[in-house]
Structure formats: C-alpha cells, structure tokens
Design a binder for these strands. Structure first.
Lengths: 328, 328
DNA sequence: CTGAAAGCGCTTACAG
DNA sequence: CTGAAAGCGCTTACAG
C-alpha cells in the first residue's frame, strides 16, 4: 500500500511549478514568493512527501549524513553501553545520530559501511586500533576517527588515565599500611590493565618499604567468586585490586560470606558499584561520552584537520567496602 | 587529502572496460570473465574504491539500508540500554546495523529521518505510540514499526506482561502472610505501572481476606531513600512493592540502615539488582532484545505484511532482600 | 522570483 | 561476456 514513489516531480506537477522551485522550498531558499512557498508546502504536507535522502546525498555530498558510526567490539563490557547514553545526548545537540556496529573480528565490513554510507565520522571503542586497510580507507575519504580507550601518537583518542588510576590505588593501600596485596586481572591483558597495574607497581616501588604484590590473571569472563573466597582466606592479605568493578563483584560477595576485613578495590565505578559500596576508581562514563561526542563533532567541523588527544583524570572513590556494613 | 571522488567511472577507465562491467563485478554478477573480474577487483582494491551508497540506494531502493532505527525516549531508563546489546547482536546476524535516535519530545524529526534515509524498519521504545502523522508516514513508505513496551491492537509490539508480574508479586506477599503493603510508583503513571499495580490489586482482591494497600506516587526521578526511611519506620509494614528496581535501590539502603525486616520488591531485575539481593521481577533484557531483533527482521522480511504481537512472561526472582544478610 | 537543463554515481535492460 | 544508454530523485548554476 502507499505510493513509495512520490517524488519532487509529482509535487512540482501538482503545484504547477518547476522542480527547481520545489527544491528551493525544500532547502529553505529565500528566493521563492511567499504564496508559492505556502502552496507547495501544503501539498508536501498533504502527501506526506519526504525527499529521498539518497538523491540528496548523491547530489550534494557536502551534506554528509548527519550521523556518526560507533564501532563496539565483541560482546561484553557494560561500560561501553553506559557511555552510549551521554554520547548520544551530546550528538543530538547538533542533530547527529549514532549508527552502531558490532564488530566481532572483522572491523573491515563496518568501516566499509561507514564509508559507503558517507557517515560523518567514526568512533572506535576498545583497546585495539583499526587495521591498516581500514585506516587507509577512512583517510582517503577524509572521515575522522576517534578512539576511545586505544591510543597512539598518530591517532585521535580520548580515554581515562589508567596509569594514574593505578597509582592512586597504590597510594590508598599505602596509606592503609597494607603490605600484602593482590592484583587480579584478566588473562588476555589489555592496554588498560597493563597501564593500571603498571601505575600501581611503579608507585609501590617508589615507596621503598617492603610490599608484597602478587598478580593473578584469570581467563576473561571467569567468575571471581571462588578465587576470591580462596584469596580472602588468607587473613594477612591487606587487599585486592581488581582490574574492573565487574571482576570485583564476585569478591564483594566472597568478602561478605567470609566476614573478611580485606580492602577490595575495583575500577570503573559502573552503575551497580555504588550500591555495593565498592571502593573504586571512577571513570565517569557520562564525562567520557560527553567529551567523546564533543571531540568527534569538533573533528567533523574542522574537516578532520585538528588532532584530538585527551586524557581524562580518573577519581578514587572510597566507599565503605572495607567497613563494617555487613558485620556487627 | 585523498580524492574523495574515485568513482566507478575511474575504475572502468583504468581497467579499460565499460561501467556496466565494473558494476557487475561490484554486484557479484556471474556474467563476467574471470580474468576481467580479477583485473577489476585488483584495481578496486588498489585504489580503495568504495561505491557510493547514496547512488546505489537511489538506483535500486529495494536494497534499502541494511539498518534499523531505534527511537529511545528522553533520558533515563537504564533498562533500554541493556536491551540494546542483545538487540544489536541479533541484528548483526543478518548484517543489519542499528541507528539510534534520542527523541525528546519530537519524534517527528526522527521518523522523518528514518524515512528519508530509507531505513528498513524502526523500533520504538517507551510507553507512548508515535503520533498520527508519523504512523502515516511510515505506513506510506511501508516501513515496519515495532513497539517495545507500548501496545495496542493495531500495532506490532513486544513486551513483558506487566499485569502478570504484578499478580505474581501479590501472590508472593500473600504467601508471606503480609497484610499491609505499600505500592510505590511514579507520579507520571505509565502503562507499565498501571498494569503492574492493577495485577497486584486484582490478585489481592481475589484473596478476599483483609489486605491494606496504600499507593504512593512520587515525582519521577526523585530519590526514594528518604521516603523509604519514613515508611520503613512503621514496623507493621509487611513490604513495599516498588515500581522499578531503580526506585527500590533507595529502599534497600534505608532498610539496611534501619535494620528493617520489611520485604522489598522491585521490578526489572536490572544488572545491579542481583548484587543487592533485591527480590524482583525479571524481564530479561537479553530475551527482550533478542526477540525484538527477530521480530523486526521478520517484519522486514515479510515486507510488513505479518503482524507481530508478543507478550513475554516475566519471572519472580526471590532473593534474600528480606533475609538476614545485613543483620545477625 | 522561476523554469529548463545538466549532472551527481550508480544499475539495469538492451543490443551485440 | 561486454558496452552504450537511459534513468533513479534530487540540486545547482544559467537564463530569463
């Protein structure tokens, strides 16, 4: 049902004018007599005419799609979806929308689509850069690319300072006079993990006094509950620094069960964490999303001539995770 | 930098063939000599040529954009963003991507864009239908529309059965022999709230025996912590049924503070809730996203001739929120 | 203020 | 297997 095919020609005919005039009305060109404009407008509205985006794009590509591609790597990572919201709100202010691509292994196809559809820019989540071919493609078409989490000298990126975050946690443990701490990470070490743990270790080394650190890496996605139970059995353990809040959640439960006094610290401050009173490092997804939105818009506006490299400062959130909430 | 303007013509020229032949290669048309195909392919690759999506669309609209619009209402609602993930994964299986529009007040503009860009379908989140004009527009262009949360006889929709969920909670309270219960909802009553509370009330009425129910509606977005403190001061109170988990979180904290024994029940089972041991009704966002993805793809495949109306069954998750976790 | 014409980059019959 | 031509629905100078 419905003519899929009302075109500008039909509108022109019904209004008894030329194509150009209708087009002018469509584009708010002032050089149209008011009475003509109104007549055309009413016909457009009567027939619910919507001009073909494809044709418009084809003819004046400068007006590239007002939308930005977002490449989200494989499944997982709650954090990415938290970013989405503020990112989207930011883009909306300039009437851009977001086009989401799940990239499992092959970013190639997604980047191709970004190019083919003439998107205005692309944001890449995760700690891996695009492949050489993909970068080449974007460059040739002058489509700006912004990394979130990955970084290198030549790219546009924005991310939180993981190294500083790690240092802050070390600082905290030192202030508590702990001497025995475990770093619990993922087996498949990411850029983030490397930086966080490096920051931690560097700070501890500076301290000079003896400090026993063990690092344990478990398979990605594995539940930390059981391991945490075992670790917390050691009453001499000062605390555990989990690579992420998600990993820490199992620890929170184990601690509760065992009435342990160890200090658990996560990383990310995702939504649930405040309710679990988890001490953690906040990387406000709200800030990140907002800044990412602004950055990509700036890149687009500057026609990809600026370079954007922002490092945001994370913030240690000390909660009562080490306190007496569950015992007494 | 980079020629934005390598076209099929350039490729044809460099390969010494006609446009048609390049086009055939692009479209995997078998009627091309292998040697020719390979030559063209290598030139395409050498120049990183990507055909213009706009031109292709214009010329054969059947191949509508392989993407689906998602209209997300105003800010808020964590739940929507949880749906996103599984929805996206589902669409990806058929090489569709998702285009996200934040609609504050005006869905009009978003729908226009959906039409203008020739998206294959649209999913509308939230409990309000599109306006008449928007529905008309979609119908004229034969673009299928699927509601999540809203429903009416004539539309395609998918949602969880809120009425049944409300009943289940009533059932649970009855089994606990409670006689005094508060329903805590939002002032700006949604379809969901109406159905949940109606299910609850209906079930209680059937019970016959005296049951004291008060319903309190607070301004949307208001923190429930203080109110919960007050309510839980009443030691005769059996429990509180919060319209949503998010609302219940304040209650969980108040209960903890006051060492209350009241039973708190939320609704949604969003990610944090399991960690708070909140009893709640699960509406698996994973299931909903997946089913929504399947449904919209089916609508697209059937050329919008099927009608899809799915009601999913929620599930009561009894956790220890009423138990002795925090006391002893 | 307005119309007719050229052209955007592709695909699709139509001939060969 | 391949080329030349028409046409998709618009915008943009160019004349009037």
């Amino acid at each position: 049902m419905g003519d899929q095919n009302i075109t500008i020609k039909d509108i022109a005919q019904k209004a008894g004018v030329g194509l150009g005039t209708v087009s002018r009305v469509l584009n708010n060109n002032p050089h149209v007599k008011d009475s003509t404009r109104e007549r055309i407008l009413s016909i457009i509205s009567e027939f619910s005419y919507v001009p073909s985006g494809a044709a418009r794009m084809l003819v004046s590509p400068r007006r590239s799609q007002k939308s930005v591609g977002l490449l989200i790597p494989r499944m997982g990572n709650q954090y990415f979806y938290e970013i989405l919201k503020s990112l989207n709100e930011q883009l909306k202010k300039e009437y851009y929308s977001l086009m989401i691509f799940n990239t499992e292994e092959e970013q190639g196809e997604s980047v191709r689509q970004v190019v083919e559809q003439g998107l205005a820019g692309v944001i890449v989540l995760g700690d891996e850069p695009l492949g050489a071919r993909e970068q080449e493609l974007l460059k040739m078409h002058n489509i700006p690319c912004l990394y979130i989490d990955y970084y290198d000298e030549d790219s546009n990126y924005i991310h939180f300072d993981n190294y500083a975050g790690g240092r802050t946690i070390a600082e905290y443990f030192i202030s508590l006079h702990y001497r025995k701490v475990i770093l619990l990470g993922e087996r498949d070490v990411s850029l983030q993990q490397r930086d966080r743990f490096k920051g931690f270790n560097d700070r501890v080394k500076e301290e000079g006094s003896p400090f026993l650190i063990s690092e344990i890496d478990i398979p990605n996605g594995e539940d930390t509950l059981n391991l945490s139970r075992t670790l917390l059995g050691d009453r001499k353990l000062g605390g555990i620094f989990y690579f992420s809040d998600e990993m820490a959640f199992g620890g929170v439960q184990a601690k509760k069960e065992l009435h342990s006094h160890a200090t658990l610290v996560g990383y990310d401050d995702i939504f649930p964490s405040r309710f679990l009173n988890l001490t953690t490092v906040r990387q406000s997804s709200e800030t990140l999303g907002r800044e990412a939105g602004r950055s990509i818009l700036e890149l687009i506006r500057s026609n990809n001539e600026n370079k954007i490299q922002k490092v945001l400062e994370p913030e240690l959130i000390i909660r009562e995770s080490s306190e007496s909430l569950y015992e007494q």
